[in-house]
Amino acid sequence: MASVELRNVTKRFGAFTAVQGVDLSIRDRELVVFVGPSGCGKSTLLRMIAGLESISAGELLIGGRPANQVAAANRGIAMVFQSYALYPHMTVRENMGFALRMLGTDRGEIERRVRAAAATLQLEGLLDRRPKELSGGQRQRVAIGRAITREPDVFLFDEPLSNLDAGLRAQMRVEIARLHRQLDTTMIYVTHDQVEAMTLAERIVVLNGGRIEQQGAPLELYERPANRFVAGFLGQPRMNFVPLGGTGGQVAPWLELLAPPGRAATLGVRPDGFEIHAAPSAGTVPAEVVLVEQLGNVSLIHLRIDGLPDLLTVEQRDKSDLRSGDTVQLQPQPRRSHVFDNSGARIDWS
């Protein structure tokens, strides 16, 4: 168990800067998720912590000790790779015990730890199989088991679930959360899937363009995104963005209703933050129903407001009676509306 601290860490590949001046402090036993679109530097950051990439500038501390120059194997970390990276010519048992064997741990101890990890992950019956005889989910479990047997201070997960199908992914997500509680170790988890980030993380770090956009508890980020990027990245379906352009143009009634400060450039409302009315009233704007998606428990209604560049998505509980072509009156809930200035930064107002 250990804390991980990054101080102004930068990674350059030639002229390209992948990670730029990242400051981050991860507490002992915390589960932190790095999330962001592809190419945002999240994997590079993880690989620098692992020691698989050198650090161009800045400082890395693991357990309070400088780790920049420490070899990857000696950092007290274990990593689970996206492709599992199991050794195809070794059995599950050999895969899981390999690191210990390389360290010269005695056979009894290796066997004990492998058995313990196998029990934790329900792999007992598979110890003598080779990776190619396992399903995707089982392979992923072996990859995690390989990390567990090393009893590392810090677990690193590099998009471990992205090769699994949706059902299995949800199941493994729960299992990883359970594992974190059981092992009580620092875990750093990289994903591009915001659902994984929201459900697993104690703290989410949103990265974009090699920088940290925002970090905090999942709901905190969801409810108070620091900028347009975070607001748009977290939440499914995506937040609706409406350009305000001074007086608001078509959506001027909303401006009167919400009364945001004058420098507000964009209004952001999540799909569940709208009210749909049949009759116009103060603060409503007419909108035309373009498409209704019935998902059973909720309905997604795509609406067009004249003069706005994008369709708006509104989520309603239960099934909807609306049909394409209908005209409705749309109104955002003030409590659930966010405004951003020209640079995309959040403006706090009420």
Partner: peptide, 26 residues
């Protein structure tokens, strides 16, 4: 796959051990 050798690096393999124990058998 490169990840195989990165895993080996993390598993305390030297270059020669990565060659001898991972690359060669495969």
């Amino acid at each position: 796959p490169a990840e195989l050798f990165e895993a080996a690096t993390l598993d305390h393999c030297s270059r020669f051990q990565a060659f001898w124990r991972i690359a060669l058998p495969l």
